[in-house]
C-alpha cells in the first residue's frame, strides 16, 4: 500500500525512515530519557520504546520550551528521531527543528496523522514540498 499525504510546508531536510506512532503528545523534556534514547515517562503510550532514527508521529507538542534546545543536542549525538510529524506542532517544536535541521511537518489535509500512519510503515518526509509518502508492506 502506498499513500501520499499533503501537509503544511514544514522545516528541515527530506528524510525517510520507519514510523513510530502514538496518539499521545510529545515533549523532549517531559517524556524522554535522552541519554538512552527511549520514552521514559511511564504514562506515555510509547513508554520504553526507542525513538532513535525513527519518524516519530504524535498528536501535538506539549510542555515547555526546553525541546527547542534538546532536539539539537540529541541530533549532535546521533540520538534523535529522523523526523517528527504532528497533527499540530507548537512554536517550540518548529524552532527546535530549525536549529537541529530536523524534518518536521504538521497540519495534514487527510485528517488525523496518528491514524493515517502505523508503526513500522516506511515513511518519506519532504518538508519543503509539504508531502509525506507512506509505504506499508503486506
Amino acid at each position: 500500500m502506498r499513500l501520499e499525504l499533503a501537509c503544511h510546508q514544514g522545516i528541515g531536510p527530506k528524510v525517510e525512515g520507519k514510523a513510530l506512532v502514538s496518539a499521545d503528545n510529545f515533549s523532549a523534556r517531559y517524556d524522554l530519557d535522552r541519554l538512552q534514547g527511549i520514552f521514559s515517562r511511564p504514562e506515555h503510550a510509547l513508554f520504553g520504546q526507542s525513538y532513535v532514527g525513527k519518524v516519530l508521529v504524535c498528536n501535538t507538542a506539549k510542555g515547555g520550551v526546553a525541546t527547542a534546545w534538546m532536539l539539537h543536542e540529541m541530533a549532535s549525538r546521533g540520538m534523535a528521531p529522523k523526523a517528527i510529524l504532528f497533527n499540530h506542532a507548537n512554536t517550540i517544536l518548529a524552532q527546535g527543528a530549525a536549529l537541529a535541521d530536523m524534518a518536521l511537518c504538521d497540519r495534514f489535509a487527510d485528517g488525523d496523522i496518528t491514524k493515517l500512519i502505523e508503526t513500522g510503515d516506511h515513511v518519506t518526509v519532504d518538508p519543503g514540498r509539504g508531502i509525506v509518502l507512506v509505504e506499508r508492506s503486506g
Partner: peptide, 29 residues
C-alpha cells in the same frame, strides 16, 4: 524558517527577549 511554517507575513519589533538556556537542555552542542 519558523515564520514560513506559521505563515508569518512580516516581522514585529520586540521590546525584550528572555532566554531559556540551562545546560541540561543546551548540552555540549
Amino acid at each position: 524558517k519558523v515564520g514560513a511554517m506559521f505563515d508569518a507575513e512580516d516581522f514585529v519589533p520586540v521590546a525584550q527577549a528572555h532566554m531559556m538556556v540551562d545546560p541540561e537542555s543546551v548540552g555540549e552542542a
